[in-house]
């Protein structure tokens, strides 16, 4: 590989070579710009928080100290939050897929009755929303405040994602394929289940990724609707640890603010690593589908 590059270099003109090195230098700079914050997070998570705050840590950790991580792993709330987030993500994403893929497929078929009206029905929700207050009253009257399902059901379907699925099917599934299935005697459901689904892996993978990342990172609905600590997702637990300046219910004195902020600063970086690791790990697994299908499918 290196040899090849060298060989190619020798055939290039001086100007080309210069350009080449310029590009490499520029890209290295960009890579550093992107990698440095990640690196900083890693070293800050094992350093003394006072040193981090006084600007004494910037390239190498001043000590290797895992007490921040020890605190993270010893905190039962973080574990409950972790468990809950995994549950919300698994159950929620499953529901999303069950709703989005069939809906997208159905809307992609020109012979769907009332297709135009159904489309408008969905599109309207993309431009107009009731706002938070009516939404709160709705949820409250459905009796879903402070329940597990409030984080699952109202976010069941993203119209944007559904249209992406629809576009995928419109451009990737030929009418002949469906006709062939029907000639063989398959019903609509059978066609979808046995013919369409097996060739939908790329779009399903992409949808799983989109929904799962969204679910993993979401906090606002949980903040508004979840009250019991046993139901907190990880993001809310982290917010409660990191954001300590709000004290409507009383009397934190300076020392405690300092202790809590110190704790927050000590575990902040570790917590960011711990909480984003699962999502970072998913990317390589689904990346090949991105290359294969997703872009080809919807934006051809």
């Amino acid at each position: 590989m290196v040899k090849q590059i060298k060989k190619r270099h020798s055939m290039e003109s001086k100007g080309d070579q210069l350009f080449h090195y310029g590009v490499i230098a520029l890209m290295t700079l960009f890579a550093i710009l992107i990698l440095y914050p990640l690196w900083f997070m890693v070293i800050a998570s094992v350093s003394n928080p006072d040193a981090v705050l006084n600007g004494e840590v910037w390239l190498w950790p001043d000590t290797i100290d895992f007490s921040g991580y020890a605190k993270i792993f010893a905190d039962p709330q973080i574990w409950t939050g972790y468990k809950n987030t995994i549950l919300y993500t698994l159950v929620g994403t499953t529901l999303n897929i069950i709703l989005t893929i069939p809906a997208g497929y159905a809307l992609s078929r020109p012979n769907l009755p009332y297709r135009k009206y159904i489309m408008w029905f969905f599109i309207i929700t993309m431009f107009f929303g009731g706002g938070l207050i009516p939404f709160y009253f709705l949820i409250s009257n459905l009796g879903m405040i402070d329940s597990f399902w409030v984080l699952i059901i109202p976010q069941g379907l993203s119209v944007w994602n559904m249209f992406m699925v629809k576009a995928y099917y419109e451009s990737n599934i030929s009418i002949e394929l469906i006709e062939a299935a029907q000639v063989d005697g398959a019903s609509q459901f059978r066609t979808f289940w046995s013919v369409i689904l097996p060739i939908s892996k790329p779009i399903i993978a992409v949808m799983i990724l989109f929904y799962a990342v969204g679910r993993w990172n979401s906090y606002f609905d949980a903040m508004v609707f979840i009250r019991s600590e046993e139901l907190y997702p990880l993001q809310i637990v982290l917010r409660n640890i990191l954001i300590v300046n709000d004290n409507a219910s009383g009397g934190i004195t300076g020392e405690d603010i300092y202790e809590r902020l110190r704790l927050a600063n000590q575990i902040k970086y570790g917590v960011i690593i711990v909480s984003s690791l699962p999502i970072i790990l998913i990317y390589p697994l689904v990346q090949r589908f991105f290359k294969e299908g997703f872009l080809v499918g919807s934006f051809k």
């Binding site: 709160y136 009253f137 409250s140 009257n141 917010r239 954001i243």
Partner: peptide, 22 residues
């Protein structure tokens, strides 16, 4: 007691009060 976190409370206080049925 129906406890909520301070952040949830400050975000939803007005809605809780106006949600007269509950």
């Amino acid at each position: 007691w129906n406890n909520l976190s301070e952040e949830t409370f400050s975000t939803t206080k007005q809605m809780i009060i106006q949600d007269t049925r509950n």
